[in-house]
């Protein structure tokens, strides 16, 4: 508000009037700008709908990456759940275009699409488990015990299961590709075992076949030609011709036949083996196995 009356012949303004005119150049920032700043810093999250192979889910995100993925009946339900889990302000905001594109490519099975994830609030152990699970390719599965062995905590199999059950970003961190060694697909946080089966089938895995093998006690398959043995879902194992295929019950059996473990899927003595005392035959982990590329 100015003190001098606007009119055809204004008087000479006082310096006070000029000060006031300048003060009126104060502009409120756009309403979303504070949230945008806090989101960029990871001090607040936005959330948006995300189409996936198992239907539309909700995804929360911030400047550090995707922070929470869940199914929910309503946006409000998701908001309540994610807010209490993340402990930060949360409000609807469209996924940034680049992040959305990466997510869509990733969920369509493109492993080269890098999706940043925000795993703050997870323990170092949980982070190790989730990061390891990120390595499992689409269409393949690994036992819980495999993750435990890979991260150097071979006895923490149950803890691995708990960490995966608390996976904040299912589908992006593919906890659906981690299964029980005894053949059951195991639980799945994003809608139960049936959803897990559906996801795996959509990725080209054969959940029924894998379950049948495991029920028959087959933990690994070896090749008569390459003298290598693999986890059954390993992409190299699936190329073994039926006549060269050796079903194996344990890594000890494989070692006895002179087979070496595949360097891609890195089969390990699993809990079943341990019960047989077979782990003594193969000192885990095999030297250099984790770093060597290719079979």
């Amino acid at each position: 508000m100015t003190t001098n009356e606007p009119g055809p012949s204004p008087r000479r303004p006082r310096l006070d009037d000029v000060e006031t005119a300048l003060a009126e150049l104060h502009r409120p920032a756009p309403p979303d700008l504070p949230s945008a700043v806090l989101r960029a810093l990871g001090l607040a999250d936005g959330y948006d709908r995300l189409p996936t192979p198992i239907g539309t889910v909700f995804a929360a995100w911030n400047g550090r990456g995707v922070s929470w993925i869940a199914r929910a009946a309503t946006p409000e339900a998701f908001e309540a759940e994610a807010r209490s889990a993340l402990g930060r302000p949360l409000a609807p905001a469209p996924l940034p275009t680049d992040l959305r594109r990466r997510l869509e490519r990733r969920l369509a099975g493109d492993r080269r699409a890098r999706v940043p994830v925000d795993l703050r609030g997870r323990t170092p152990f949980e982070r190790a488990v989730l990061t390891k699970a990120l390595e499992i390719p689409p269409g393949e599965v690994r036992p819980y015990a495999w993750i435990a062995a890979e991260i150097g905590r071979p006895k923490a199999v149950r803890a691995v299961g708990t960490a995966l059950a608390r996976n904040p970003v299912p589908l992006v961190v593919p906890c659906h590709r981690v299964v029980r060694a005894d053949g059951h697909l195991g639980a799945y946080s994003l809608g139960g075992p049936e959803t897990k089966r559906r996801l795996l089938a959509a990725e080209g895995a054969d959940p029924d076949g894998l379950e049948a093998l495991a029920r028959a006690g087959i933990r690994f398959v070896g090749s008569r030609t390459t003298r290598i043995f693999c986890l059954p879902s390993c992409r190299t194992a699936r190329r073994i011709a039926p006549r060269h295929r050796i079903p194996l019950r344990s890594s000890a059996e494989a070692a006895a036949m002179g087979l070496r473990p595949c360097r891609i899927c890195r089969p390990r003595p699993l809990d079943g083996d341990a019960a047989l005392g077979a782990h003594a035959a193969l000192p885990p982990p095999w030297p250099g196995a984790a770093r060597m590329p290719g079979p």
Binding site: H26, R27, P28, A29, P30, L43
Partner: peptide
């Protein structure tokens, strides 16, 4: 920092 953002952003934007 959230308080800082809400208190200061109008000034900085202006």
């Amino acid at each position: 920092f959230e308080r800082l953002v809400r208190d200061e952003i109008d000034r900085l934007f202006s």
